[in-house]
Design a protein around this nucleic acid. Structure first.
Lengths: 274, 274
DNA sequence: TTAACAGGTCAACGCCGTTGACATAAGGTG
DNA sequence: CACCTTATGTCAACGGCGTTGACCTGTTAA
């Protein structure tokens, strides 16, 4: 749609599986997996078309039969990550606990593949796994009783907070070891030694800073967000218990597991053009 | 320190101001300013060594007399940005309004220079401007009455959330125009058209999604975080008014502008190797 | 059996960051 | 003022990048 030039063939139409010179049979999935492996093993910078071609045993330009450009490939990698994160998540019916669990999963899922998360966490893919995630989270919120407009606002804040912290912490994790060690030491070596007369607040809290700053702030931030959301819900519903089926009609759990599986097993279901 | 190879001359030692072929007299500050202008005027992708050289009227390789590599240049640009963000901020005494203002400033400051923000937001520099920011924010929180441990936890969540959203939104802003347009369209073209029977929650809220997702969720997330913090403070202090000067002693404004200026004019102050 | 064409390959383009070698003018020294 | 050192700007080249037009060849449907 963007480019005038398209040698990409939609996955459904692929029939001829011609092997490359080295005997490998290419596929979109194989390429995505290999890209993930490359990123994990050699860092985000290692993901270049040429190196990916080399790792696959194919000419680099062969990739352009599967993905429009490198950005398109990156989106596919991102969606694969989302899919892996959601694969075995199950809602319990307690919206706050469910969202907390989901947020922590997204966060730790990204940290498990920091290099890939850094590259892809800020993208809107519009692909199958992402759509499933959106549907599920909205279902949890509406099922809890949030009115539609409010549900969307909370959804947006929740998701972007998770993605933003994931990217932040992933970037930190993915730093070259030397830089990483240097940054860790800054809190002890620099902040903890500032004199109380010039920096009284840092000096007074130095002990807490050294202890606290080495961990991710995401759990704290997540709990603060969920707490504020719960307070709003209490206001909105006027103290009513939040367990009852809201506008979503109590189908919130329904959209989770079965659909998620189905989406994962077949070919990409409704998949938009890119 | 990283590289064996260094044609960079420390700023203090510079004496000969030899003009370039086109008559321009280079300096680290001029280069940083020009880099910022380039990013502003022609987008994040416009910042390349070659284009910067062209914009300066100098050979691209001349830049390597001032910065070790492009990363070094970007950190200098980021440092300049922090300085500008804090330069004219003044606390009012209302901790919640102050933190809200500060958060929004950090966020919008990053969005004005997305490329620099993306690359630098997750680093702990230990430099003058950063230290100043830590001291100031901690002062606001302690002045509001938060106990030390709690102040540090809120500080951490607040700062990392601001940085994380800044990086997230900056990354989105820094996308190549084509990709950026494509993402904006995904919500209308894909999500708004999903059938209600397969994706009931998305279908029910499609109108809100299209409207809400084009804006940053940071203001919402920020307000949620501050609201939750206020609730905790109310619990802790047992409903006491938060206006009085707490342990921080209300000196928060004092350390700001003078230090910032001084640090900017000389060579890099204490800077860790990173 | 065969002909079409999907899909792998090749070579080239124009960009990028970076560096070694070189040239020259600035500025201290006498 | 003349001289010399050397800081600093310039040049040319390297290797790597994403991408594309042209080509070639094996698979597959008829």
């Amino acid at each position: 749609m963007t480019s005038t030039n398209d040698r990409v063939v939609p996955p459904a139409a692929r029939r001829r599986r011609r092997p490359t010179k080295t005997g490998v049979v290419l596929s979109g999935e194989l390429i995505v997996e290999t890209a993930l492996r490359l990123i994990e093993e050699h860092g985000a910078d290692a993901l270049t078309v040429r190196r990916l071609g080399l790792a696959l045993g194919a000419d680099p330009s062969a990739l352009y039969r599967y993905f429009r450009d490198t950005d398109d490939l990156l989106l596919a990698v991102a969606d694969e990550l989302i899919g892996r994160t959601l694969r075995d998540w199950r809602p319990t019916g307690d919206w706050r606990a469910d969202l907390r669990d989901l947020g922590l999963r997204m966060h730790s899922g990204s940290l498990a593949h920091p290099q890939a998360a850094v590259l892809s966490s800020y993208r809107v893919t519009g692909r199958a796994h992402e759509i499933q995630a959106v549907e599920t989270i909205l279902g949890v919120l509406r099922g809890a009783g949030f009115p539609d407009a409010e549900a969307v606002r909370i959804y947006h804040a929740f998701v972007d907070q998770a993605l933003a912290f994931a990217a932040l912490d992933a970037a930190s994790t993915a730093l070259p070891p030397a830089a990483r060690a240097a940054e860790a030491g800054v809190w002890r070596a620099t902040y903890a030694r500032l004199p109380a007369d010039s920096h009284p607040n840092i000096a007074a809290t130095a002990r807490h800073l050294v202890h606290d700053m080495r961990r991710s702030a995401y759990p704290t931030a997540l709990d603060l967000l969920l707490g504020a959301a719960a307070a709003r819900l209490a206001e909105t519903t006027g103290g009513e218990r939040a367990a009852g089926p809201g506008p979503g009609g109590g189908h919130a759990p329904g959209t989770g597991p079965a659909d998620g599986r189905a989406a994962g097993s077949g070919p990409r279901p409704p998949g938009p053009s890119h």
